[in-house]
């Protein structure tokens, strides 16, 4: 028997486990009633996410996180109408935990299951707080993805540009690692940048045609610049860390915004949106907002809690799919790539 479409006031349990955050959220009557995330500190010492450790941590976090979300929302598991879960892209071992827990719950409760594309969910994070005007040009920036997406309506998206190598989040992480700083690199570099001179060093932009990005060159450029500078003065990085961070961060953000400006000339956007983990970067948020003001179009940027991986955005994206009765079968598999 096929399940009917969901109504707009349905109660949806969202589950996210695509990388190293285990998250559960409840969307009740169009509002996020709970959004609980357990992060995994275990990866910090390795300078990046270790997939096997992430999978094991998801396994021990997932039920307590769901229970905490239910308690926060003040409902029981039997009051939900559907379960939305990240189906991909992401790390396979991590996705397996979320998807199969969701399948088990769906079978137990006899409630429909919705498989959500994680990247589409980052766009849906905007719908939690904004009545978005379409068409919208989206800049999706995270540890694993850097994309320009043309959004004509909720769920109707086309890719217009993307990175041809590293994601911008990786560029932050690797830059931080080169400078002997912690993981994740974005917050570390942003912190040091606050007191630095962003004109201290010019890093080259990549020469990509079209609207694609490339971040592998700037990372190598940073490494060579520091190696040379340290040879001249072993105290160079200790003395100029803030300046190097500020210059590197500014160069990465300029590379992002240059493509957005170029895309705005080609696409008649009624609004622009910024989303993904790197959208928590304060300088990027501010410069992106300025860009919207310059073009006199609305700019949408999620609150910090909806920038990084979270289940609220999964529940929100799940609502749109559920309203069209686009459900996931029990035999459907998670996927690692979009």
């Amino acid at each position: 028997m096929s399940n009917p479409p969901l109504s707009a006031n349905s109660t949806i349990l969202g589950i996210e486990s695509s990388c190293d955050d285990t998250s559960a959220a409840l969307l009740i009557n169009g509002k996020i009633a709970a959004n609980i995330t357990a992060s995994q500190d275990v990866h910090r010492k390795y300078g990046g996410v270790v997939p096997e450790l992430a999978s094991r941590a998801h396994q021990s976090h997932i039920i307590p996180v769901i229970q905490t979300a239910l308690d926060t929302a003040g409902i029981t598991i039997h009051q939900i109408d559907a379960i939305a879960v990240t189906q991909g892209p992401g790390l396979m071992g991590s996705l397996i935990v979320g998807v199969n827990t969701a399948k088990g719950l769906s079978l137990a409760l006899k409630k429909p299951l919705i498989g959500v594309n994680h990247l589409h969910a980052h766009i849906a994070a905007l719908y939690i707080e904004h009545d978005v005007v379409f068409p919208m040009l989206c800049l999706l920036v995270s540890g694993g993805h850097t994309q320009l997406i043309w959004a004509e309506a909720p769920g109707i998206y086309s890719l217009v540009g993307q990175t041809i190598d590293d994601a911008v989040g990786e560029a932050f992480d690797k830059g931080s690692k080169i400078m002997g700083m912690g993981y994740p690199g974005g917050p570390e570099i942003a912190h040091w940048s606050e007191t630095g001179n962003d004109q201290f060093q010019k890093f080259p932009d990549s020469q990509t045609d079209s609207l694609d990005f490339s971040f592998s060159g700037i990372k190598t450029s940073l490494l060579y610049f520091l190696q040379k500078s340290q040879q001249r003065d072993p105290e160079f990085l200790a003395t100029h860390r803030a300046d190097v961070c500020a210059s590197y961060q500014k160069a990465l953000i300029d590379m992002l915004l240059k493509r957005v400006k170029k895309a705005l000339k080609e696409f008649p956007a009624a609004s622009i949106g910024l989303m993904g983990g790197v959208s928590a970067n304060r300088l990027l948020r501010s410069e992106f907002a300025t860009l919207g003001q310059t073009h006199q179009i609305p700019t949408y940027i999620p609150s910090f809690e909806y920038c990084t991986d979270n289940a609220a955005m999964i529940a929100q994206a799940g609502l749109y799919l559920g309203q069209q009765a686009q459900y996931m079968s029990m035999g459907a598999l998670p996927y690692t790539r979009a």
């Binding site: 999978s55 997932i62 769901i66 397996i96 827990t101 399948k103 088990g104 719950l105 137990a108 409760l109």
Partner: peptide, 19 residues
Amino acid sequence: SYTGLRIGTSLAKGLCFGL
């Protein structure tokens, strides 16, 4: 198998928690 155990455990937890 780590993957196999993970699939079985996740399904079982979802079932038990739901029921």
